[in-house]
Amino acid sequence: MSSETGPHHGEAVAARIERRWAALSIVIVGVLVGMATFIGIHQATMPQGRVELANPRTLHLSGEFIESNLGTSVEADGSVVVRAVGQQYSFTPQCIVVPVDTPVNLRTTSADVVHGLLIEGTNINTMLVPGYIADLQIRFKKPGEHVMPCQEFCGIGHQGMWGKVKVVEKDAFAKLMASRRRISCVE
């Protein structure tokens, strides 16, 4: 087999090279998928783990998305939770305040159509689909301000749907939280 010549030899060489390339391609794909799995396991950055429902008709009547419960809160167990609603054409609260370097649970839903939110300068990005709650674990490394546009077409006013996020030092946050149960940076 090793000393064959002629057209059959050429065909065998061609097939061998081709097989090697196919094997390499499979390895490349395997590495990519493996990387995503590895990061998923070790940095626990996976999509939201549970599906939760919310009725967009009655968000304002009862439950965690009523107006007075929106904004940033410190729960009984000491964790920081931000609750926000997306609607045509604003987020409420339209300015979210969070402490720096603290794990924050961002819970959002939509009151009408499909919206999305992303916080520029971070990799925080989620869809707000009416009927469901988007639940995200987020963390900000530095204090500062970010803009938070709606990233999904939600109607003719979509281009005007920009919110804000203000990241403050931990003691400043504690001071804000001392006087009120729910806070935001809406002036």
Partner: peptide, 13 residues
């Protein structure tokens, strides 16, 4: 409106 102030055109609603 004024997009960065979160003000959409009045007519969109």
């Amino acid at each position: 409106g004024a997009p960065m102030r979160n003000i959409p055109p009045c007519g969109s609603c």
